[in-house]
Design a protein around this nucleic acid. Structure first.
Lengths: 379, 379
DNA sequence: TTGTAAGCGTTATCAG
DNA sequence: CTGATAACGCTTACAA
């Protein structure tokens, strides 16, 4: 092939003299089939009128040369699209895919992208800045930001300047689409339910407040809501405060894990009986499950001795017979929606913002509510 | 800019006359900075010698034009690489990301790819063939197949012809790298431990045998091992048979889920006490956990009334105080290894095949072994 | 240290 | 229905 000086693309078996040094291209197929490159292109894309005979000849030539369709890279450049949507994750998710909520969100995104025949480019950005480079250099037709990503600003800016549509989850920014949830309202409603039961000694087990992880007792809920930089944590604590919950103890954990909830409960319940909380509000279901397990171990009956609530609406079959009283989040829907927004923007539609509602879900760990107070009053 | 007839790339705000219709390119930056395109390229790639003054001028021009680095598509075409590794998943994983083993594998892959600044393109191929097209058309420098993928052959062929390196997990093929695990041996060892305890009435709770999902009792283990088309299922059952386990009952489930194990155990244990199995071997930890929960509910003491074993070595803190006797798999390592293989092949190294060992892990659900028999005799 | 030039492998347009 | 042509936006060997 007319290669005079060649391009260095690493070792390609140079002393192999019979076979082609580089892969067959569309032009090679055209030559062998005795047609023009455009005809070959049309044959493979299926988008143009090609006579059966010609198509046959092209396909034969392709098979002979071991040509398996247009090169994705060249096609992408020419068409200006890559067929790939970037999903950029940070924080916890970067280290482990373990959070069931994140997993379900990803699943929702994958649903939508799969249905549109789009690839999902997963980019983990960790605190060290690994991934930022990739996120700004990778080819993608749109990007979805999952949770708060630490190097987000830089990435966001690069993408925006390049005109790549961006969908933000759990945060909003002009120019970008966003999907958020009414965590605060949902938690306020759940808090109201707890208060309606007449509990006075209420403890709260929280998610991490910010990037640095510290485990232990904290003082006051309002201060906590202010101090927390993580949106989930802040919104949910604010919701509790708004509902009028004044906890006797607040315990910060290092993450949404069963073990963390277990430890927190052990600490909170290891006090004289008359000081012991009668209700523990956990900011996630996994934490709540840990609380339930700790209570079981201490011989406390749920919900008679202790009411427990969570957040997320995750399915925990192994906690049977208990089912956490929680706040249901349409997480998969959220992911699908984010995917749909990305697709819409790729088509040129303007960015939209959607807020999905969350709602309390009755379980077995809260106990019966004496008086029905379903709608929480704001204020 | 010199666009006369233009290319239709969808709506781009055509009546906006002041601003640039298309994004600024490297050439535009060069023109504004008064340097040649190659200089701009060198400036951004950082790979060539550029004087501080020139670099400054280029960066200023870029900022002015809102240019944020070379277009990924063009760069990819020119360099011949995309910086992306495809991870192709099928079967169960396609529908849900829920399997903890798969998740840990993905995590391992992500570790390695992240460290090499490579993107991870997740492609789900479902039974309907969705994703096959994408897998053959997407740009990737290497591909990793997770588990058995239904349309795999077609994808594999296309990738191979294109010269894309392929890493197979849990299967092997000439020309492709592969990483597998010694499931059969591991299970044989675990089976030997069960037999060493003197159990005679042993039941087995299996993973799905093949694509079609049927739940219920089956007859015989050898027949089962033959009938199973899913590799995990087949290998583990073969291992049991090899160890000499002759189960009194075999129960097929629809998936590795706690609920499935629970149901299976209920069915297996709902017989007259003198026919009841004294040991249940589950082919996954999640299934085993379901068995433990069912046994608890029936008031059976573990391991006194019933020995239980699993497979995978997954952490299940919520099952405390019980810890499943299981077979530990270095799953994350497996993922990392697959990533490393992909990277190596991208560098031109020949495909390698690695088999990772698995080993029994002692828990609390099997009971003490009277006589130590650590090495299983084959045959 | 910087500029020149030759593509990378396609596809969209338009003419035949 | 098919062919010629002109990009897509960038990188790199080599010359200056």
């Amino acid at each position: 092939m007319g290669l005079v000086w060649g391009i260095d693309r690493g070792p390609r078996d140079p002393d192999h003299e019979g076979g082609p040094v580089s892969r067959a291209t569309l032009a090679d197929v055209a030559r062998l089939a005795g047609v023009s490159p455009s005809t070959v292109s049309l044959t493979f894309s299926g988008s143009g009128p090609v006579s059966a005979a010609t198509r046959e000849r092209v396909l034969t030539a392709a098979a002979e040369l071991g040509y398996s369709g247009p090169d994705p890279l060249a096609r992408s450049l020419r068409r200006g699209t890559s067929g790939v949507v970037g999903v950029i994750t940070g924080g916890e998710l970067a280290a482990h895919f373990r959070d069931p909520v994140a997993i379900r969100t990803l699943d929702g995104i994958a649903d939508t992208l799969g249905a549109h025949d789009l690839g999902m480019l997963l980019i983990r950005v960790n605190n060290g800045g690994e991934g930022v480079d990739l996120a700004t250099r990778a080819a993608m037709d749109a990007a979805i930001f999952l949770r708060s990503v630490d190097g987000a600003d830089e990435i966001l800016q690069a993408l925006t300047r390049r005109g790549t549509p961006v969908v933000l989850m759990e945060s909003a920014l002009p120019g970008a689409a966003s999907v958020t949830m009414t965590d605060e309202e949902g938690m306020a409603e759940l808090g109201a339910r707890v208060l309606a039961l007449g509990h006075t000694r209420i403890a709260v087990v929280t998610l991490p407040w910010g990037r640095e992880r510290r485990r232990g007792l904290r003082h006051g809920l309002d201060a906590a809501a202010d101090a927390a930089t993580y949106r989930f944590t802040r919104d949910r604590m604010t919701g509790l405060a708004r509902a009028g919950v004044r906890p006797t103890a607040v315990y910060e954990t290092c993450g949404s894990l069963v073990e963390e909830g277990f430890e927190a409960a052990k600490a909170l319940l290891d006090v004289p009986p008359n000081e012991r909380p009668t209700a523990i509000i956990a900011l996630s279901d996994l934490l709540a499950a840990g609380v339930v397990l700790a209570a079981r171990e201490l011989g406390l009956s749920i919900p008679l001795d202790l009411s427990v609530t969570g957040f997320d609406g995750v399915d925990l079959p192994w906690l049977a017979p208990d089912v956490i009283d929680s706040v249901e989040q349409p997480v998969a829907r959220k992911g699908q929606l984010a995917g749909e927004m990305a697709v819409a923007m790729m088509r040129g539609e303007p960015p939209a913002s959607v807020e999905l509602g969350v709602w309390p879900r009755a379980g077995t760990t809260l106990g019966p509510v004496p008086e029905s107070r379903s709608s929480a009053e704001a204020g």
